[in-house]
């Protein structure tokens, strides 16, 4: 985990899974990951190095940051899949194509946003309901995703992989919708 030239801490070449001493798999037990995360945190967290010399404090800071970054990605099934499948999440501003089955829902949401911006507070509950629907869609997409994980881990089948990628795209799309609604409701 150390750079051979400057002795700086780097993410290990095996990546986030290696930090946790785990095989790179899509399906992982959340409790197991959490247990490892807590254990590593107890050893590496800067709180454990508060009274150590500056050099060691810096190492601990770097190590804990890498550990936290890794945990953030691996604990979330969608981000874990994106990471393992080398899926590059769309940059800010780029929007994935609209899934056809969501067209009507989005149309209604935009109407509600327009009325709310126009000062019609009556649109607020409508928007809040849309938010609830999107949240449950996200949950469903997440579940559908996880159902494919085991199959992919066993077979590494291309067809399964593309179904996962499709679901990841759909989930990202819903994620953006949730953010849009949240923003409008917070206005």
């Amino acid at each position: 985990m150390f750079c051979p030239h400057c002795n700086a801490l780097l993410c290990p070449p095996g990546g986030y899974f290696e930090i946790f001493g785990m095989e790179p798999r899509l399906e992982i037990a959340r409790e197991d990951l959490e247990r490892r995360f807590y254990q590593l945190s107890r050893q590496l967290h800067p709180d454990r190095f508060a009274r150590r010399p500056a050099v060691e404090r810096q190492y601990s800071l770097d190590a804990a940051a890498i550990l936290n970054d890794a945990y953030r990605v691996l604990r979330d099934p969608a981000r874990r899949a994106e990471y393992l499948l080398n899926e590059v999440p769309a940059a800010a501003g780029d929007r994935p194509p609209v899934p056809a089955e969501l067209l009507e829902e989005i149309f209604e949401m935009n109407m509600a946003i327009e009325s709310l911006r126009g000062g019609d507070q009556g649109a607020r509950p409508q928007l809040a309901a849309a938010q609830e629907r999107f949240l449950s869609m996200r949950r469903e997409a997440g579940q559908a995703l996880e159902e494919l994980f085991d199959e992919f881990d066993r077979t590494h089948d291309d067809a399964v992989c593309s179904r996962i990628r499709l679901l990841l795209g759909r989930r990202r799309f819903i994620e953006n919708l949730i953010r849009d609604v949240e923003k409008e409701l917070a206005r």
Partner: peptide, 25 residues
């Protein structure tokens, strides 16, 4: 003194990491 212990601190941290990883396994 910090300069003199730089290498030592690095290897100690590496050992800590290693044993932490082993521990996790």
């Amino acid at each position: 003194l910090n300069q003199a212990t730089l290498h030592l601190a690095g290897s100690m941290m590496a050992t800590t990491l290693e044993s932490a990883l082993k521990g996790a396994k």
